[in-house]
Design a protein around this nucleic acid. Structure first.
Length: 756
DNA sequence: GTAGGGTTAG
């Protein structure tokens, strides 16, 4: 058959057939040749058919290629190999594997051309099982010493995260070449074993192998990904000094590291190198340049690099948006995002995730939740980075249903084991009042890191569950996770929530002695709170005076709040005096001192303070509360009447107020400005946002449903008393999270034991 | 027709 084909081909001398002998035949030439062959009856000739198949496949016409393949009565390994090659090249990896198994089922042994390509397909699919099968077939087919086949297997094992297997393949090679070695170096770097990558890189010359671009770039990228930015920069410099010309890959790996190091001068030099070498057309290089300038706070330069780009790449757009947002230009970033979307730019998951992260980092939680919804509406699937970005927005607004939806999504898409996702879930559930679910999520994280240990401890601290927090702390030490300074902030604040003084001191004293962590100003602030809340104000003041460094606003603030709880004017004034110097524009401090004066009926002082605030143009931060009802987050501002259900809310509140008075409750008007009538004071108290939110919840949920409210300031005494009453009178569990901790109201009592 | 895939989101 084959001979007849060549014979015909030569004799016919047809230009139509001639062209299919060349690998560059166009698709229309291929189709003409196919038609000609069908017409002249040489269609089942293996030689022509294989040529045709290969051309169709290389043009991506796999339906035609398969048709031709099935018309060949006795296909050879060559027919299959060209198809497998093209399918892999077009990234149709699953189909490539199918064709391979079809070939194997015909009893055809693969050759040295099929094996690397099919291995590449397994690598691309991260399909270890298929990869191992191919490895077995390769070895029984006599390719166990073939350096090309074995190099591709190294790459496959690297992609599947099996570094030990990759190393075994490498060690079995009698004469590893530079390709095999570089694959392993790059693999170690990629899998986070940068130490091993660097070591093997240094050994290469001893093995008689000169490191090439792949190995250099692998090590640079490895250092960059492991956060060892300086070493990445050093490698880059060394590479250049040793006469290697860094390429696009080297430049785009080193630039983010230079950005993190804020080595602007070096960054500018690399930019110069990019221009001289003509690497400026590469999309990754441009993106990395934008990122570097953004990290060095050069907003003008980053916009310039973007504007000079010829065709806009989504990666560069994403870097631009993040860069602007990171440098305080959140509004511009959001505007650009909208523009890109309206212009029909194909946004990817990074674009959406970056914008959601920017919102969340800039306090735009509701906007973040809306973007998350919009993203899914547009058919974009969130990933394991999106989820940790959206969860803080759910946590901040107590949007439990949104948070649960994100949790369900993580379970469905198999990313709930990810430690970042897990930690964000722990944090979200804790902040939404569901500490038990938070703990379940924590227990389900298979490989724990410092972040998730700290997250669950912070959760317990927030809920005033000091025993559980201490249990976690000791579990953490037992599992040989070293605590950091945040771990101590969590455990100390847990102690301070319940006034556990002795334990607090034990942890504080152990910091430096047992863990080598010098207490920082925030740890002192915890201790001041701990002592202050317990009424040991003088001791707290002494500790501040003896601190090894200058106390900051947090420390004095801790003392001032304690003075408010214990109505101590003298120390309160001392703390406030310091605070007015340290944070002259923070209205909270003036309000706290004013509250202390008011509680002692020192109205002249209250007036003076109010005048000071007025003359400085300071206003009390408006109280603001959030409650999620039926998937919608409602925001209520103190005294704001704009909520559509406000009439109903006020009606219900008045009714409750009457009931309360009947049972002996009198509104606590201590903290309300004195020069209004008693009745107006009550009205002002009624306008507190947490009360409005609770009542809105009562009105819109079935009896017995628990309520979750978040407040941006600390809960006031009056609201605390009222909500306690509501919890009993209405038979509801009510969770209120203020800036300090959780209050869990049930049957007329609060979990904080009225100590906050 | 064996190795890298670099960059932008936590």
């Amino acid at each position: 058959m084959r001979n007849r084909g060549i014979h015909l081909f030569e004799n016919l001398n047809s230009p139509v057939l001639n062209c299919i002998n060349s690998a560059t035949a166009s698709l229309s030439q291929t189709r003409q040749a196919h038609a000609y062959i069908l017409k002249t009856g040489v269609s089942n000739d293996t030689h022509f058919a294989t040529k045709l198949l290969s051309l169709y496949a290389n043009h991506g016409c796999f339906a035609d290629a398969n048709l031709v393949l099935s018309s060949i009565p006795d296909p050879s390994v060559f027919s299959f190999s060209s198809l497998i090659y093209a399918l892999t090249k077009f990234n149709l990896l699953g189909q490539s594997l199918l064709v391979f198994s079809r070939m194997a089922s015909l009893g055809l042994a693969p050759d040295s051309r099929v094996l690397p390509n099919i291995t590449k397909a397994c690598a691309g699919l991260s399909s270890l099982k298929s990869g191992q099968q191919v490895h077995g077939i390769a070895n029984v087919s006599g390719f166990s010493l073939d350096v090309i086949v074995q190099s591709s297997l190294i790459h496959m094992y690297v992609k599947c995260g099996q570094m030990d297997d990759a190393r075994k393949v490498f060690d079995r090679l009698p004469q590893p070449d530079v390709v095999a070695c570089s694959a392993l170096v790059a693999g170690y770097a990629r899998q986070g074993c940068v130490e091993k990558a660097h070591e093997l890189f240094n050994e290469m010359r001893g093995l008689g192998l000169e490191p090439n671009l792949v190995s250099w770039n692998g090590v640079i990228a490895g250092f960059n990904h492991s956060g060892r930015h300086y070493e990445a920069a050093v490698m880059f410099k060394k590479m250049h000094l040793e006469g290697f010309n860094p390429d696009e890959g080297s430049v785009s790996s080193v630039l983010p590291a230079l950005g993190d190091l804020e080595m602007l001068d070096t960054g500018i030099q690399v930019h110069g190198y990019v221009i001289v070498q003509g690497l400026g057309q590469d999309k990754c290089v441009v993106t990395a340049l934008i990122d570097m300038y953004a990290k060095c706070a050069c907003t003008l330069e980053l916009s310039r690099v973007f504007d000079e780009m010829e065709d806009r790449d989504i990666g560069a757009c994403n870097a631009l948006i993040t860069g602007l947002s990171r440098n305080g230009l959140f509004g511009n970033a959001l505007e650009l995002f909208r523009q890109f979307k309206d212009q029909g730019m194909e946004l990817n998951v990074v674009s959406w995730t970056s914008m959601i992260a920017s919102c969340s980092q800039n306090g735009k939680d509701i906007e973040a939740l809306e973007l998350f919804r919009e993203m899914q509406f547009e058919g974009m699937k969130p990933n394991s980075v999106t989820i940790p970005c959206i969860l803080p927005a759910c946590a901040n607004t107590a949007a439990l249903m949104h948070g649960k939806a994100a949790h369900c999504f993580s379970l469905r898409s198999g990313i709930s084991n990810d430690v970042y996702v897990g930690s964000a879930l722990v944090d979200m559930y804790a902040k939404c009042g569901k500490i038990q679910i938070s703990r379940l999520c924590f227990d389900n994280i298979p490989i724990k890191n410092l972040v998730c240990w700290n997250a669950i401890m912070r959760g317990y601290a927030m809920h005033g569950k000091v025993n559980e927090a201490m249990e976690i702390f000791h579990m953490m030490l037992k599992s040989r996770q070293k605590p950091d300074c945040i771990s101590f902030t969590c455990i100390l604040s847990a102690c301070s929530q319940v006034g556990l003084m002795d334990q607090g001191w034990v942890y504080f004293n152990s910091m430096s002695r047992d863990h080598g962590i010098e207490p920082k100003v925030e740890h002192y602030a915890c201790m001041i709170t701990l002592m202050g809340r317990a009424g040991k104000l003088e001791e707290a003041y002494t500790m501040i005076k003896q601190m090894p460094f200058q106390p900051d606003g947090c420390v004095w603030g801790a003392l001032l709040s304690s003075c408010r709880v214990h109505k101590n004017v003298i120390l309160g004034e001392a703390a406030a005096k310091k605070l007015f110097k340290l944070e002259p524009k923070n209205p909270g401090n003036y309000i706290l001192l004013s509250n202390i004066y008011a509680s002692k009926a020192m109205w002249a002082e209250v007036d003076t303070l109010r005048d000071t605030m007025k003359s400085m143009g300071l206003r009390k931060n408006p109280g603001c509360s959030w409650i999620e009802i039926k998937n919608k987050v409602h925001m209520l501002l103190a005294g704001d009447k704009s909520h559509p259900q406000m009439t109903q809310i006020m009606g219900k509140l008045n009714k409750l107020s009457m009931e309360m008075k009947k049972s002996g409750y009198f509104p606590n008007t201590d903290f309300v400005l004195h020069d209004v009538e008693e009745q107006d004071k009550e009205q002002i108290l009624c306008g507190h946002s947490e009360k409005l939110a609770v009542v809105l919840g009562l009105l819109n949920t079935l009896p017995g449903t628990s309520l979750q409210v978040i407040k941006n300031l600390r809960i006031c005494d009056d609201c605390h008393a009222v909500i306690k009453y509501i919890s009993r009178f209405e038979g509801r569990e009510i969770f209120v999270r203020d800036t300090n901790r959780f209050h869990h109201f049930k049957d007329g009592v609060c979990s904080c034991g009225d100590y906050w």
